[in-house]
Amino acid sequence: MATAPTKKTAAKPTTKAATKSAAAGRLGVPKTYKLYLGGKFPRSESGRSFAFADANGEFLANVSQASRKDARDSVQAARKAQGGWAKATAYNRGQVLYRIAEVLDGRRDQFVAELVATGSTARAAEAEVEAAIATWIFHAGFADKYSQVIGSTNPVAAPYFNFSLPEATGVVALVAPQQAGWSLRGIAAVVAPAIVSGNTVVLVASELNPLTAISFAEVLATSDVPGGVVNILTGFVEELAPGLAAHMDVNAIDLAGVEDTTLARDLEATGAENLKRVTRPRTFAPRHVGELNEIVRFTELKTVWHPIGV
């Protein structure tokens, strides 16, 4: 098992990383990064963590290393939340997604600092936070529209009223993109289109930047997203993804950030056991954000027939 390289902590008062205090001479109060599971922030049941370093290789934080059991618990939390989330009105889901954007916007500086600490330039970090906010707003506004775009009434050749509408697939496992510059916006790019339709998700955070994922969980926790709708695991894809791919109560899996092609193939094959809807690994570019297909792939089309008579 690969662990992230660590180095000894070196106080760098000029950085604004979350673990450090900006005030000179003040002893900071570093945050403990935990998992986000069922709306709560537990430590891994395994008690494990790994040290995570900044771009210069200096210690930033100990990150919870989620286990297969944590993944299982996350699926349970996601399943528990799914019915209620899917039942919420589309307008309501739209407002909840918009609230995420609002809270994110309010913590813009924190995220910029955190992204800078993990290797972004300040400019790129600002652009990324802005892009993430935009992605959430885009999907907030899509919540009560996508079904009008992909649903239909169908002119059948008999006296029946016939319509098709999309419904959430259910519980979706997501492997966050591992691309540089896509830690915060990458979460938005995979989570927003999955939850906008009423799915609940278990996100395996990017190994490149697990801290941002957990800080984003704080955004979720302080906006109006019901507990369990988004669950975030930090740890290692190769440890967590196989259990999620094999889990018979997971309906779909997005292999977005699975970079090892052999692992990706195995995960897809494993997912076949309950015919998971599998999305294969892909490289994200800004133009992909807002692809209708990112929503469609985690919906099921339901067609309804009813006779027309008196």
């Binding site: 169908n154 059948v156 089309l301 067609t303």
Partner: peptide, 27 residues
């Protein structure tokens, strides 16, 4: 949980009407 629901009818098919399943009934 079903891709096609027939209400007050059953086993109707039409080219204009999408057909297919949820879960282990396929995609």
């Amino acid at each position: 949980k079903a891709g096609v629901v027939w209400a007050n009818t059953f086993n109707r098919f039409d080219p204009a009407s999408p057909f297919g399943g949820y879960q282990e009934s396929g995609y």
